[in-house]
């Protein structure tokens, strides 16, 4: 992860504050099971869960890093990381100022945002066509 999600204040965080990690990991396990059985994907918005200071980092650390780490430059940076558990992805969207604007855990074969989008492919096709036409005209 490129930046820590928690600004550290002079507040001691006791070890028993991380009560939300286990339930979330169980939820992920269920979602994985669902993906295997029915192919259904699950997206968990980390901003919708009440997390104690440091807990988000704890969750990310537990999930760890896997084989894929992709960067996306669209309205600011995005990081798409496959965790050490294949099928479990962490998608983090940043804005122009490099602040996290949203963070999702996606349980899927590949997050939708990584695929090329039909509209963009169509736009790319016409762009390429125009470029080739221009070249032809120049020659």
């Amino acid at each position: 992860m490129s930046s820590s999600s928690v600004v550290q204040f002079n507040i001691q965080v006791s070890a028993d504050l991380t009560q939300n990690v286990k339930p979330l990991l169980h939820e992920i396990k269920h979602a994985l099971d669902n993906l295997i059985e029915t192919g259904q994907t699950t997206i968990i918005d980390l901003r919708s869960i009440p997390l104690a200071p440091g807990e988000e980092d704890h969750i990310l650390k537990t999930l760890g890093l896997g084989e894929v780490q992709a960067k996306l430059d669209a309205l600011g940076l995005s990081e798409i990381i496959e965790t050490q558990y294949a099928g479990v992805w962490v998608v983090t969207h940043y804005n122009d100022e490099n602040h996290i604007i949203s963070r999702f855990i996606e349980i899927t074969t590949m997050p939708e945002i990584l695929s090329s989008q039909t509209e963009d492919i169509m736009a790319a096709y016409s762009r390429l066509a125009i470029t080739l036409q221009d070249d032809q005209e120049k020659n």
Binding site: I43, I44, D45, R47, S48, L72, A74, L75, S78, V91, H93, I101, S102, F104, E112, I113, S116, Q117, T118, E119, D120, A123
Partner: peptide, 25 residues
């Protein structure tokens, strides 16, 4: 000149902002 991918990212952030389920994206 905003790409579809950027738009999807925007929608994901918007869903999160509106406290809506990611299934609503």
């Amino acid at each position: 000149g905003v790409s579809r991918r950027s738009f999807l990212k925007f929608c994901a952030a918007t869903a999160s902002m509106m406290a809506m389920s990611p299934a609503m994206i």
